[in-house]
């Protein structure tokens, strides 16, 4: 897949605008940030999740949506403030808990990470890509 051409897709919804680029950490399974991610390292600690042991720090995280505890917003913010948060988030459904962590980060630290929703087909493409660039207008350039 290394020399496959890049694909550009457009967000169905921009939940939190911003720009980012990075390696992709992707899973088809929903993830709860509270109890699922260590905010001091960004590493997935939910043993039942396929990304268990993977660091989300600096990555473009591709997940259908979040799940579980409302405290996920705190954990997301804590991770971002610690420098252990994702660079951007691409989902298939609107997720308020994840978006809220990014909104509060912007409001209180004037730093943004983009949170986007892609339609089903584009989301499937993102799941199998290895690197992504998110542009301010909501376009996502997928590589590999």
């Amino acid at each position: 897949m290394g020399n496959s051409p890049s694909t550009t897709v457009s967000a169905q919804l921009i939940l939190v605008p911003g720009e980012a680029r990075g390696e992709i950490a992707a899973s088809e399974q929903m993830l709860s940030f509270w109890g699922g991610v260590d905010p001091s390292t960004g590493i997935v600690i939910d043993r039942r999740h396929p990304l268990h042991g993977v660091s989300l720090a600096g990555k473009i995280v591709v997940l259908p949506k979040g799940k579980g505890s409302s405290t996920g917003s705190y954990v997301m913010l804590d991770a971002l403030v610690e420098g252990a948060g994702p660079a951007g988030i691409v989902m298939n459904k609107v997720d308020e808990i994840i978006s809220l962590g990014a909104v509060v980060y912007d409001e209180f630290h004037s730093r943004t990470i983009p949170v986007l929703v892609l339609n089903d087909d584009d989301f499937s493409r993102a799941l199998t890509a290895s690197y992504a660039e998110i542009l301010a207008d909501g376009q996502v350039v997928l590589h590999g």
Binding site: V16, S70, T71, Y74, L77, S99
Partner: peptide
């Protein structure tokens, strides 16, 4: 901003709030 995320077109008054954000998870929050 969250009304935008939820695609709401208006806000409503609430009569009571119960805060779950009393759990400590880290210094950022």
């Amino acid at each position: 901003r969250m009304a935008h995320v939820q695609q709401a077109t208006e806000l409503v008054d609430i009569s009571h709030a119960h805060i779950g954000g009393s759990i400590y998870t880290g210094k950022g929050s």
